[in-house]
Computed example of a mutant assay.
Amino acid sequence: MTGNMISLAERIVFSDKFRPLYAEGMAMVEEAARYLDGAGRIESRNLSRVAASLYATESMRLTTRLMQIASWLLLQRAMRNGEMSRQQVTAEKAKVRLDTPSAGQAAPGWSELPQAFVDLVERSLRLEERIRHMDCEVRNPQRQLATDRHGNPVSQQIVLLRTAFGVA
Rank of each mutant, 00 (worst) to 15 (best):
E129G: 08
L98D: 01
T147R: 11
R149V: 02
I12N: 04
M5E: 02
T100H: 07
T63Q: 12
D99Q: 07
E30K: 04
F14I: 07
L127K: 01
I6M: 10
P141I: 01
T64Q: 10
L47A: 03
V138Y: 00
N152I: 15
E83V: 05
L36Q: 04
R19P: 00
E10L: 15
Q157H: 13
G40R: 02
P108V: 05
D148E: 12
R34Q: 10
L127C: 04
R97G: 00
A39R: 14
T2S: 14
D135C: 01
R49W: 12
A33Q: 11
A164Q: 09
P141K: 02
G109Q: 08
E58N: 00
R80I: 06
T147Q: 10
A33C: 02
G82L: 13
Q88K: 10
L113P: 03
M5Y: 06
K95M: 12
V89P: 00
A168C: 10
F165V: 04
R162T: 00
E24S: 03
V167Y: 15
R123Q: 01
A107L: 12
A103R: 02
A107F: 10
I12W: 11
T57Y: 11
E43I: 00
M84F: 15
G104I: 11
A107Y: 08
M84Q: 09
R130N: 08
L54K: 03
A146F: 15
W72A: 06
T163H: 13
Q76T: 01
Q156G: 15
S85C: 12
A23G: 05
V159I: 07
Q68P: 04
E122G: 03
Q156K: 14
M79D: 03
